[in-house]
Amino acid sequence: MSLNHVRIGLIGGGGIATEHIRGYLAHPDTTTITAVADAVPETAARRGKELNATSYTDFNELVLDENVDAVDICLPHHLHKDAIVAAARARKHILCEKPLCLTPEEAREVKAAVTESGVTLMCAHNQLFMPAVAKAKELLDSGAIGTVFEVRTTDSFYNHFDPANMGWRASAKTSGGGELIDTGYHPTYLMLHLAGGVPVEATALLSTHRLKFMEGEDSAQVLVRFDNDVVGHLATSWAYDPTPTTERFSAVGDLGSISSDGISLTLSLRAGTVETFEFEDVETFSAEIDHFAQCLINGTRPLHTEKEGVEVLGMILAAYEGARTKTLAPVLQF
């Protein structure tokens, strides 16, 4: 069912919720936050007052609010599945921060709940809304570089986490692993988007270079094969900044290549043509939220739904299994 104006219930009032709130405030014609839930009473009350919204300390109560059309899940990783299922059963549309969920069992439960309810679920994969990514996808889909052989993605930075400020991310039980399933989720969904196929096998080298107090890795190098024979490689880390010449993403095909630093994009053809596209910087969270609202208003499919969210999770879980067994592990189809 399409809507004229989307009333949002924000589930989780800390951390990343601040970026999402800015996005909603940038689009008052199509969205309004009418409710907010946070398990910390003080946070729920503060956000409720800030947004002039009804506040809850239990998201199971928020999803029953008749003044909510859709929920935006900004919770720690291990709480995503329960919130998705509760929202779907209450017939609320869903925007969920990454990762979609953490295990194969959770993935199956999420897919079943969304399918049975018929609601729209959009994965909050904000880097897809970088103009350079949209142009790259357009070029790849048009055959500009011919048959694609390889896609590379990178998302690394020097993280100042320490035991005092890392919170739930320091525990594999609540984060789902280490850096790969957190920041590494971004280059994984970007790889999926650009590769244009279904992931079938993966492996990884995991490292803890600097953040030794973590249970999981602080860095990962991942290889993925897709069913269209594209091979993907990603590098991701909280331990270090990449070298200045490292691309944000690239793709190579039989006719040439594309490469981007995230702001500009260069198309280089084997025939000798080189073209560079420059883009204005975009607030990707705002663009993501506008896309979500437009999908609900117009009844269209989001760029990434639970289908792609589950595929990204499958890639990461296969990479973890490949690292553990030192093999190429199959990507499970949930």
Rank of each mutant, 00 (worst) to 15 (best):
Ala53His: 09
Ala70His: 09
Asn52Pro: 02
Ala53Arg: 10
Val85Glu: 06
Ile94Phe: 03
Lys81Thr: 14
Ile73Tyr: 12
Tyr56Val: 04
Asp38Asn: 15
Asp82Cys: 02
Val68Ile: 11
Asp82Trp: 04
Ala90Cys: 08
Val68Gly: 10
Ala39Gly: 13
Phe59Gly: 06
Lys49His: 11
Tyr56Phe: 12
Arg46Met: 10
Ala87Arg: 10
Glu50Leu: 13
Pro41Met: 10
Arg91Ala: 13
Arg89Met: 13
His77Gln: 08
Thr43Tyr: 00
Lys49Pro: 00
Ala53Phe: 08
Asn60Phe: 01
Ala53Val: 10
Phe59Asp: 01
Gly48Leu: 06
Asp72Met: 12
Glu61Lys: 11
Asn67Glu: 15
Asn52Ala: 14
Cys96Trp: 02
Glu66Trp: 00
Leu79Thr: 10
Val68Glu: 12
Ala70Val: 08
Glu61Arg: 13
Phe59Ser: 03
Asp69Ile: 05
His77Ser: 15
Asn67Val: 09
Lys92Gln: 11
His78Glu: 03
His78Val: 10
Glu50Ala: 12
Thr54Asp: 00
Asn52Trp: 02
Ser55Thr: 05
Asp58Arg: 12
Ala86Tyr: 00
His80Gln: 14
Pro76Gly: 09
Gly48Thr: 10
His80Asp: 09
Leu51Lys: 06
Arg46Tyr: 11
Pro41Ser: 06
Glu42Pro: 03
Thr57Tyr: 04
Pro41Leu: 05
Ala86Glu: 08
Leu95Asn: 07
Ala90Asp: 03
Leu75Val: 15
Glu66Ala: 11
Arg89Cys: 13
Asn60Val: 01
Cys74Pro: 01
Ala53Pro: 08
Leu64Tyr: 00
Pro41Cys: 07
Asp72Gly: 09
Glu42Arg: 14
Phe59Lys: 07
Ala86Ile: 03
Leu95Pro: 00
Ala53Asp: 08
Arg47Gln: 14
Thr43Asn: 06
Ala86Ser: 14
Glu61Asp: 15
Val85Cys: 05
Ala39Ile: 12
Val68Cys: 12
Leu95Cys: 07
Glu42Gly: 05
Ala70Glu: 06
Ala83Asp: 05
Val63Glu: 00
Ala86Phe: 09
Arg89Asp: 13
Val40Asn: 11
Ala44Lys: 08
Asp69Phe: 06
Val71His: 02
Thr54Arg: 15
Glu50Gly: 00
Ala90His: 01
Glu61Val: 03
Arg47Ile: 03
Leu51Asn: 07
Ser55Phe: 14
Ala53Met: 11
Leu51His: 11
Arg47Gly: 00
Glu42Met: 07
Leu51Met: 10
Ala37Asp: 05
Ala83Asn: 01
Ala88Asn: 05
Leu62Met: 11
Val68Thr: 14
Ala88Cys: 06
Val85His: 00
His80Arg: 10
Glu50Cys: 05
Leu95His: 01
Cys74Asn: 15
Asp72Trp: 02
Ala87Lys: 04
Thr57Trp: 02
Ala44His: 12
Ala44Tyr: 06
Pro76Val: 06
Thr43His: 04
Thr54Asn: 08
Ser55Glu: 07
Thr57Met: 07
Val40Cys: 08
His78Arg: 02
Glu42Tyr: 03
Ile73Leu: 13
